[in-house]
Design a protein around this nucleic acid. Structure first.
Length: 908
RNA sequence: GGACGGCUAGCUCAGUUGGUUAGAGCAUCCGGUUUACACCCGGAAGGUCGGCGGUUCGAGUCCGCCGCCGUCCACCA
């Protein structure tokens, strides 16, 4: 046993405690027969990332869940790792190369990849190290990187299997092209942003009727050189006679057909649409229906090419827009331009408008879509909060094929080889396998790599050795899969959560077209998904680097301690809502740790420690014969708190959790029980029982707090001798409400409900007494007397508690009286009427005003109660206990009112 | 355009299946070194629960409409 220092200093405690856990292998999980398993796989942070406040939230929740599972006696495994983040890492390495005056093309594929490996090794350890400072109890020996050799093989195997099963194909289709990253993107990587632009109205001349024009509206005049038709709605009478005719494209000057297509909206603009099949998704579809030529006037980087005409060749796309408008104007073809807001797709990563572009890509049709809907609808996979299920189902119902190829180098290179000098579009010339062809000299491998999400969607099982697990991994998969909880943000429901569910259903078992419910249950990757809120700043803005409003987590840890930060952030994170972050609101965590520390310190100062080695040991030190009302009350509150905490854990209500524990420990235990203890500890007869009770409360509270604030609770658990044979706190299973109640009952302790009620009444009396003193500026005086009138039963109780009442109120004496004390401030409470004895005269008028205010309140309550009870419908239709409650309340309120009226009278 | 979420004290949030006089923390104000803790203790003030209707004996809670704020989805150029 060591003495506890005066103020809690997390810096002195946290690193040592964390190291001790690591040294003892406390986070190592092994499949153990007959033991309940618990597993979380971490959402792998980007390998080049640094810890953000968002991670703090996410990691804290996961650590709470894992540690709670561990202290419940489950075999708990938290699997850590990082993601290679293909496009993001690419962008950062390329940016670095630019500062060196070189580029990835100059470097070549191999050297670029070497360089990127170097980069990720330099940065990769960083974020994992930061997680340790937060106290993350990951099983670090299992750390996985999505570019590890084994993981690569998993990704390639998944590709090959899906290819063989007919879900993967290569095709020339419209893709979202990022002109900065120079790669195709999936639909999910495109963000629609409203854009202030211009809507141009221009006119094209009819070939057959020179001097006659058709007016066309567009927001993108720079693509007109790629137009290969204009289209109208087939039923649009304004234009029906022109269908089948021709029109002049002004430059490069060419005749275009006028066609009819249902997709044209008659209401929009003039109802005439210019059709650019190479650069617009809708136009591409129209072009396909009408067999229109496709003229691609854009280079991959978004500049125009020679097909746009000599004067546009090489021009940047937005410069080309201005230039095209200028040309139209000069030719007298620009009719109008007006401000216009429309939605433009942006590349999520590069933050520039994407170009719809026709190109050869690899696509995936999703397998097991129906099953993916079923498992969530039927609760095999539960979402918290539930409302995200709707978002998930909606996405699955409107699924588009997934573009999985990226024109990048960092990532899993697509395992397809093309026969040299042969037609790449013909699958007969393809070789698809994990290891490649036996005669590599005759083949060329596909240049593209896979979308990062096409590797991370395998995370829950590829991290455990799928598809070729060794003996240990096989046991892991059997034991830990399906995993228990997934904790992530709702922004990646589509990117990651939905796809992991699909991948699990497809791969975690033999190839099957459809699955039974039992098979689904075995294959799902996790049972619960907890969606965190998104952290915002005090003004409700998103946290972002450019706004400079991102809190620095490591500074916060220095300031508040990891435990303080953890408690604080849990306290301010409402379930399913975005979180307003402010540093000030984190102080509650630090303050709470300090309170906990000092309460334990006070316990240590109050008397020698006795046997605390187990729940039974502590409980057996209690002496039911010596229980007073306070003891009953605190035990009742403790049991209720254990129940509430249980409930909060099982419904993932983490802010609730901190509030329950904060309220009980600080509000009930410290402010009332410990204060009362100060009297009890002076008496030899009550001391030991009181200390045992404190030990019990502290013990149970430490257990419940451990998942949230593990370092400090571990330290105190050890300092107060709760650890039999030096074990960690989590090695003693946390008591359930049942085990706690049973242990108490076995010792002969049964909660006396009337004692609990008495204490609540006593607390009211004390509060009112303090209030009276404070109202007369006597709060700090110790020589004040109180008088009380009460019925004999209550008086006996009050007398028995007079010492603690005196201590809690700071009064000199509490003196029974038979009648009212004239001209004295008074308060009516459940136990009687309390009078503040004032040696000097009081401000009678002020006191009258105060009491009148209270009287008004009571009269209002009486009026409400009376009208309710006079209502026959209420009497006949409301449940009996509600009616009785209303009657009792009315009676009590009337009595109180009469008493206050008497006091007012006595004031003269 | 559709869907979802939020609107309760100055701020951030609780308010279970409708049922006593709507709560907490922070901030504010007043008073305090009492046998742990000033990262503390005691007290006070502060709300027509976004608006309007409806159901009901009874609505912060259920229903309808409206208003802001936010998020997601959507091929009107």
């Amino acid at each position: 046993m060591t003495e506890i220092p005066k103020a809690y200093d997390p810096g002195q405690v946290e690193p040592g405690r964390y190291k001790a856990w690591l040294d003892a292998g406390a986070f190592t999980a092994r499949p153990i027969e007959g033991r309940e398993s618990y597993c979380i796989v971490i959402p792998p942070p980007n390998v080049t990332g640094v810890l953000t406040i968002g991670h703090v939230l996410n990691i804290t929740i996961q650590d709470i869940l894992v540690r709670r599972a561990r202290i419940q006696g489950k075999e708990a495994m938290w699997l850590p790792g990082t993601d290679h983040a293909s496009i993001a890492t690419h962008a950062r390495v390329e940016a670095q190369l630019r500062t060196e005056g070189t580029s990835r093309r100059d470097l070549g594929r191999e050297k670029f990849i070497d360089r990127t490996w170097e980069w990720s090794r330099d940065h990769g350890g960083k974020i994992l190290g930061q997680l340790r400072r937060l106290g993350a109890s990951c099983d670090w020996d299992r750390t996985v990187f999505t570019m590890d050799d084994d993981y690569n093989r998993s990704v390639l195997t998944a590709f090959v299997k899906l290819y063989q099963r007919g879900y993967i194909y290569r095709g020339k289709r419209m893709v979202n092209w990022c002109p900065v990253s120079l790669t195709a993107l999936s639909d999910e990587e495109v963000i629609m942003k409203p854009q202030q632009g211009l809507l141009y109205k221009m006119r094209y001349e009819l070939v057959d009727q020179p001097g006659q024009y058709l007016e066309i509206s567009t927001t993108r005049p720079e693509t007109l050189m790629g137009d290969t038709a204009v289209a109208v709605h087939p039923k649009d009478e304004r234009y029906s006679r022109l269908i089948g005719g021709k029109i002049w494209r002004p430059f490069p000057k060419e005749q275009l057909p006028i066609i009819a297509d249902d997709a044209v909206d008659r209401e929009f603009g003039t109802g005439v649409l210019k059709v650019t099949p190479a650069h617009d998704k809708l136009d591409f579809e129209i072009g396909r229906r009408h067999d229109l030529p496709i003229v691609d006037i854009l280079n991959p980087d978004g500049t125009l090419n020679a097909l746009a005409g000599e004067d546009f060749d090489g021009m940047e796309r937005f410069a080309a827009r201005e230039f095209a408008v200028k040309k139209l104007e000069e030719m007298g073809l620009l009719v109008d331009q007006e401000p216009y807001e429309n939605n433009v797709g942006y590349s999520q990563r590069a933050d520039v408008p994407i170009e719809p572009r026709l190109s050869d890509q690899w696509w995936m049709r999703y397998p097991k879509v129906e099953e993916a809907k079923t498992v969530v609808r039927d609760g095999l996979v539960r979402f918290w909060p539930k409302r995200w299920e709707k978002t998930y189902q909606h996405w699955l119902e409107n699924l588009q094929d997934w573009c999985i190829s990226r024109q990048l180098w960092w990532g899993q290179r697509i395992p397809v080889w093309y026969k040299k000098n042969c037609d790449r579009t013909d699958p007969a010339n393809w070789h698809v396998s994990v290891d490649g062809p036996d005669d590599p000299e005759n083949w060329e491998q596909e240049e593209d790599v896979l979308d990062t999400w096409a590797s991370s969607w395998l995370w829950p099982f590829a991290t455990m050795g799928w598809p070729e697990p060794n003996e240990n991994q096989k046991r892991d998969l059997d034991f830990f899969y399906p995993t228990s909880d997934l904790v992530t943000g709702p922004d990646i429901i589509f990117f990651w959560v939905a796809r992991m569910i699909i991948a699990g259903l497809e791969f975690m078992g033999d190839e099957k077209e459809t699955l039974t419910k039992e098979e689904m249950a075995e294959r799902i990757p996790f049972h619960n998904v907890y969606f965190t809120g998104i952290i915002r700043d005090e003004q409700g803005r998103k946290i972002s680097k450019s706004l400079g409003n991102s809190p620095e987590p490591l500074d916060l840890i220095d300031k508040f301690g990891a435990d303080g930060l953890r408690f604080g952030i849990m306290n301010i994170a409402p379930k399913g809502q975005d979180i307003r972050f402010s540093e000030e609101r984190i102080t509650i965590g630090r303050n709470f740790c300090n309170k906990l520390w000092n309460a334990c310190r006070f316990r240590q100062m109050s008397g020698p420690l006795a046997d605390n080695s187990s729940l039974q040991a502590v409980v057996s030190r209690l002496d039911p014969q010596k229980f007073d009302e306070y003891d009953h009350w605190i035990i009742a509150r403790l049991i209720q708190t254990v129940r509430d905490v249980d409930q909060a854990f099982s419904t993932y209500e983490f802010n609730q959790l901190t509030q329950i524990l904060h309220g009980f420990f600080w509000g009930d235990f410290c402010n009332w029980y410990v204060e009362v203890s100060k009297t009890k500890l002076q008496s030899d007869t009550s001391r030991d029982n009181c200390l045992a009770l404190q030990d019990l409360v502290i013990r149970q509270v430490l257990q419940m707090l451990y998942p949230i604030i593990p370092h400090i609770t571990e330290e105190l658990w050890s300092n107060l001798g709760y650890n039999p044979k030096g074990g960690f706190i989590h090695e003693t299973p946390v008591d359930t409400p049942k085990t706690l109640v049973k242990a108490l009952r076995d010792t002969g302790i049964v909660i006396d409900a009337s004692a609990v009620e008495h204490i609540e009444q006593l607390m009211e009396l004390v509060t009112q007494a303090r209030s009276l003193k404070s109202n007369y500026n006597l709060a700090s005086k110790r020589d004040v007397n109180f008088y009380i009138t009460a019925d004999p039963k209550n008086l006996t109780f009050i007398k028995s508690q007079s010492e603690t009442i005196k201590r809690l109120t700071g009064a000199a004496a509490i003196i029974p009286r038979d009648d009212a004390l004239p001209e004295a401030p008074a308060a009516v409470v459940a136990l009687g009427t309390l009078y503040l004895d004032l040696a000097s005269s009081i401000d009678v008028d002020a006191e009258k005003i105060r009491l009148s205010k209270e009287l008004a309140k009571l009269e209002k309550a009486i009026a409400t109660g009376e009208s309710k009870l006079e209502d026959k419908k209420f009497i006949s239709q409301a449940p009996e206990h509600v009616v009785k409650g209303a009657r009792d309340l009315l009676a009590a309120t009337r009595a109180k009112k009469e008493e206050i009226e008497r006091i007012i009278d006595s004031l003269g």
